[in-house]
Each structure stands twice: as C-alpha cells, then as structure tokens.
Design a binder for these strands. Structure first.
Lengths: 245, 245
DNA sequence: GTCAATACTTTGTTCTGACATTTTTACGTA
DNA sequence: TACGTAAAAATGTCAGAACAAAGTATTGAC
C-alpha cells in the first residue's frame, strides 16, 4: 500500500545513519515522489527493509515530523503533510538566500570602524565599554538596492577586513573563523526609513522599511553578532514556520 | 561540582517519565535554582541518581536543548544557557499575549460574513468555491487601537457567532471547538496602511503597518484558519527564536 | 621546562528487546 | 442484523548495553 522510497545507506560515512535516512526521505517528499496525503511506510517495515534498528528509523522520521513534513498518529500511521512549502526559518543571511535563489548579490561596505555602544554590548552580554567592530553594508541584487545591514561584532573579530566582507557574506566569514551561531533572538518590526536609508535604498517618501534586529550566540553562549537590518518592504518578506509540540 | 536538582519521578503517572523530568528541570532553570552558565549534572550520573535509563534522561535533556535552555558540547558537558529569555515563538494570538502581559484587551467585530475567495481557499488547500467565514476585527488594548485582524475560517466553522468573538480570542473559540492548530506558515512584511486601516488604527499619514499573513493547520492537515493581520508598527514587534541543529 | 602522546570524561550513535496505548478491523454472539 | 469484544497494526515509552567521537587533563619524555 505505502510507497517504498529508494534509500541507500552508507555505513562507512561519518554522517549519522538517521540523518542520511532523513535527508533522502525529505528529498523524496520535495521531489514529489511522495505526495501530500500519501501513507508513509511504517517504521518497523522501513527498519527491516533497510537493515536499520527501529530507534534509528524513528529518529529520522522524528526529524521530518519536527520539520512539518510528516504527520504521525498513533494507531493510524504516518502520512505526508499536505503543505509542500515547509522551509524552516534558518540562521542564514540574506546573501545566502539570494545566492540560492539565483540572484547576483553584491555588497558595498559603507563604513567599517571600531566603536563602543552600550545598548549593543548589553544585547551581546558584553561589558558596556567593549570595543566592537561596527559594519554598515548596502546589499544589492542585480544592482537593485535591497537592504541596509548594520552589524556589530565582539572584540574577537576586530581584525576582519573590509575586503573579506565585500567578497563573502558576513556569516560565511564568521563560519570560516570557527564562529558557529546556534541560537538567535530576533525582533521584527517596521518603521519609516531615515534619510540616509531612503537614499541608499532609493525609496519613495511613503515607503516603509521592514526591520530585523538579531543577537546571535554560539554553542557555548559566546556572542557572535548583533545585527540591525532594514529591508525594502515591497521586495522582501520573512517566512516563519511554527510548530507546536 | 554540578548542582543536583531535586526531582521526583512518579512511575504510576500517565505522563511519560522523560517529560516529568524535563518539566522539573525546566522549572529549576526558570526559578533560578540553576543559574546561566552553571554546569549541568551529566546524563549518566543523573540517570543513576534517579534510577532512570540513559535514553530517558537524554530525551528529557534534549527537550530542554531544543527549547534553548541548555547547551550541550560533546566532551565538555552540558551547561545552562545564558539567555534567560528563551520564549519560543508560539501559535498564540495577540489577544493571549496581551492578557498575559496584563493589558485589558478588547475586540470590536467590524464585519462578519460568508464569502468566497480564491486566493484564501488556495492557501488553505480548499476548493476555490468553498464558502468561508470572513471576520474583520479591531483589537484594542486599554482603548488604544493596536491591530486590524482579517481572518477566514473553513466551512466547518461557519456557525461561529459575532458574540463569541467579542468575548473570547478567536484562537480560544477554535480551541473550544476541538480545532488544534499545530503547524502554521507565516509571512511577515510591512506596507503603508489603507485608508480604512489608517482610520481604525488612528495612524498619522507617514506611519507604516507591520503585516502578518498566516495559514494554520491541525495535526491531520486540515485547515484551521487563514489570517491577514496588520499591526501598528510602533507598538508591536514580533519575536522569533531560532536554533540550528 | 616544554611539548606531545595518552588516558579520562562526556556526549553522540546504534542496536536489541520489551511492553503500553490508540485506532481500526474482523469476528462472534445475542 | 446489530452490537460488543477481541485481535491486529501502528506509534509511544522505556531499559540496558556497547562503541564512537570530541574535548580536557594528565603524564611522560626530551
């Protein structure tokens, strides 16, 4: 009855088995091989067919459930959720977003200096007099201005150069230096742009900007970044997936 | 070294052991018994002390990690996260938010009628000619207008009355009728208000609104609600917690 | 005294096995 | 025929064990 998805497991790979399985099942749903509403092969049969233990298969399925791709009901079985678009809000920068979408993003660094800022320091759990690297960038896609990005980085990153930021996304630079943001706290709102922002984003006088401020931390709780971004509201929206457990 | 949190497990309770444990540990963090940065008792010791198996303890800890309360690092141990505010973005309405915050929210139903709308029907996976209950409400807090809420409900809820909505939040009404939204897809953006919205929200001509459109579904994938809300941007912001796994 | 290799601690992954709970289906009896 | 009970099917919970991987600390050699 249930469709048997073709899965190949590489036991010599360093990638955990449950994750290999989750990725391939997720791919089968994304590619349309599994249609919304379809019954999903039950976990015991799947485990037997792939020579995996039940906990491993369960964990893979659980991963998809928490992404909203599958729905489980005890006694009934597992079915494919009927919403195709279930992209989870991720800790990626707009740069990555655009690159994936096929645009040609470019960045202009408007300013790049060391400053002290009490409010930002507080948001990053740093002493009020910490010297922060303040970066203001203009992000364009196909020569169309999209966003003004203001960021503050903790003292450990004070030596990041202007050139780095022009060629790579800021998150890519941080990743290369071993900073891995794991938790972030975002606040989304809207306001009218300042005169400078309006000029940079080429906005008409009645057009608002969408704002997002974010504090990001790594796994050990060390601050990675504080950001205050404003986007052209008519070109950009923020998608959030919510799931209650 | 690590603080031993007092935990009592009731094995005769229908509540799963891992959940009992997670709740009590979460409480210990919320109450301040465990301070941010504190080392957390390692999972093997905790399992032994409470006479639970390691998988059970692991699952409880995993629950707290995914809530952002704990941070784990292999080889190092588990520590209490140093951000206290880790409220996950939840599927609650603004009404509930305000009630918790101690405000006095009131609702005025501006319109309440049956309509057909192709776009909304598509967003809810319903046939294009489905008859939807369209509700437009004005939300106030302490007599200050906050938001214009436009909602569409599937045919099953066509009999919800005006009075219900005036007294309870819409989500509370839906809950009472057994509708339990589990997954939602939100899009957040900003724009200038329409003339009617500006009048209702008493906005000056240069003030933008923050908009949120949302499709919500229950555990079986049935549509529960489509919402198109606009908020006074200067009074409201949306908080989102992100965590990468 | 410094540096590298080793041992230890802690979390991560995987397996086998068992029983509980929920829902549907089928069967048997009144 | 109708209803209730029992079996089957599926997910949920829990235990115990073993090994892997990562990070720290210790120890040993030079």
């Amino acid at each position: 009855m249930a469709i048997q998805v073709g899965v190949t497991i590489d036991r010599s790979s360093p990638v955990p088995l449950y994750h290999q399985l989750a990725e391939q099942l997720s791919g089968a749903i994304a590619s349309g091989q599994l249609q919304p509403g379809d019954p999903f092969e039950n976990e015991i049969a799947l485990a037997e067919r792939l020579n995996l233990s039940r906990p491993t298969v369960r964990r893979a399925i659980q991963e998809l459930v928490s992404q909203g791709l599958l729905l489980r009901q005890r006694g009934l079985g597992t079915t494919v959720a009927n919403r195709k678009v279930h992209r989870r809000a991720e800790l990626t920068s707009l740069y990555d977003d655009l690159k994936r979408a096929g645009g040609r993003p470019t960045t202009t660094v408007l300013s790049h200096e060391l400053v002290r800022d009490e409010q930002v320091a507080a948001a990053l759990d740093l002493p009020a007099d910490a010297e922060l690297l303040s970066i203001v960038r203009l992000r364009l896609s196909d020569d169309q201005p999209l966003a003004v990005l203001r960021n503050w980085l903790p003292p450990a990153y004070n030596d990041i150069t202007r050139e780095c930021l022009e060629t790579e996304g800021m998150y890519a630079v941080l990743r290369d230096r071993g900073a891995r943001p794991v938790v972030a706290h975002q606040t989304i709102s809207a306001r009218m742009p300042t005169a400078a922002e309006r000029r940079h984003l080429r906005l008409k006088s009645s057009e608002p900007v969408l704002t997002m401020t974010r504090s990001a931390f790594d796994a050990t709780g060390n601050p990675v970044e504080y950001g205050d971004h404003c986007y052209r509201a008519q070109d950009y929206s923020i998608e959030v997936m919510l799931d209650k457990r």
